[in-house]
């Protein structure tokens, strides 16, 4: 039976066959979309050195998701509130105490995450913990798809409008201020967008792996170019490609989707790490003599 299908559709069955399923089309769509959004944002995260912040925000949205489900409101609203709340709390604790920033970040996000776990077990609802933690693009509901779409549009619009200002803010905040740019606004804009992107990313790879979506594509692109614009293009491309390949692998070999997407991303990073024209370790050694 299966052999027959292969024979009919030719060598591209592996590519087109999954597309006949509604759930696969949706999974590919949402994964590619989230990949693009997170890929774009990842450039700013890696250049700003906010990997840990990304990890923090993505974990801190957990209780928000649970509370939102319990209250029957869109999960993204709850997630956003807790994401931004965690950031505000990190800022507050850092300012008011002598504890170092990375310690505060680690402390706050694990606290939030723990709260989320406790809430899940306490609030008896139909939330599937595994879906939150590991994502489930193959089983995404219409409502979630819609939310992810809206979030993505918001994030992309803001990142596109402020792309130059945000780049300048990451590169040289002092200069940004000295030409009258409101850096406080940019700071909170970037954090808000980060919270939103974490919520979107949670749909495809889940809370635990979202941070990979938010840094790996940027890190990969960073190894490949010296130009910021090219870096964003490359990051988006590698991120979208990873998402699509990841979903296919997940479909054909029946493995967990979030894991497979992130694993593809990591492999692409490793390839860049080894073979990048200027900064790959295999090439940079050549130029030493």
């Amino acid at each position: 039976m299966i052999n027959q299908a292969f024979a009919v559709a030719g060598p591209f069955t592996w590519l087109f066959d999954p597309l006949s399923h509604e759930f696969m089309r949706r999974a590919l769509l949402v994964s590619a979309l989230v990949g693009a959004v997170c890929g774009l944002l990842s450039c700013y995260m890696t250049l700003k050195g906010w990997a840990l912040m990304g990890d923090a925000v993505s974990h801190a949205v957990m209780p928000g998701v649970v509370v939102a489900y319990a209250l029957g409101i869109p999960f993204s609203i709850g997630a956003f509130v807790f994401g931004v709340g965690s950031v505000a709390l990190i800022g507050f604790v850092k300012q008011k105490s002598r504890v170092k920033e990375d310690t505060v970040i680690g402390l706050v996000f694990t606290g939030f995450f723990a709260l989320g776990l406790v809430l899940v077990s306490k609030i008896k609802s139909n939330i599937d913990l595994m879906h939150i933690l590991f994502g489930s693009p193959l089983g995404i509901s219409n409502a979630d798809l819609m939310q992810t779409f809206i979030i993505s549009v918001i994030v992309v619009v803001f990142l596109l409008i402020y792309r130059r200002d945000l780049m300048l803010y990451c590169f040289d905040p002092t200069h940004a201020r000295s030409i009258g740019i409101n850096t406080t606004f940019l700071h909170y804009l970037l954090l808000s967008v980060l919270s939103l992107a974490a919520v979107a990313g949670l749909q495809t790879v889940g809370i635990i792996l979202v941070v990979a979506m938010l840094i790996t594509p940027g890190a990969t692109a960073y190894l490949l170019t010296d130009r910021f614009d090219r870096m964003t293009t490359l990051a988006i491309m590698s991120s979208v490609i990873s998402s699509i390949i990841g979903v296919y692998i997940s479909y054909w070999s029946d493995i967990e989707t979030g894991g497979s997407i992130v694993l593809v991303q990591t492999i692409i990073f490793l390839l860049a790490f080894l073979f990048a024209p200027r900064y790959g370790i295999l090439n940079s050694q050549k130029s030493i003599p």
């Binding site: 250049l47 780049m167 300048l168 590169f171 200069h175 010296d226 130009r227 870096m231």
Partner: peptide, 12 residues
Amino acid sequence: FPVSVWDVVMMG
């Protein structure tokens, strides 16, 4: 940071 000299001056 992945910016050229030109980009930096343009920031002015």
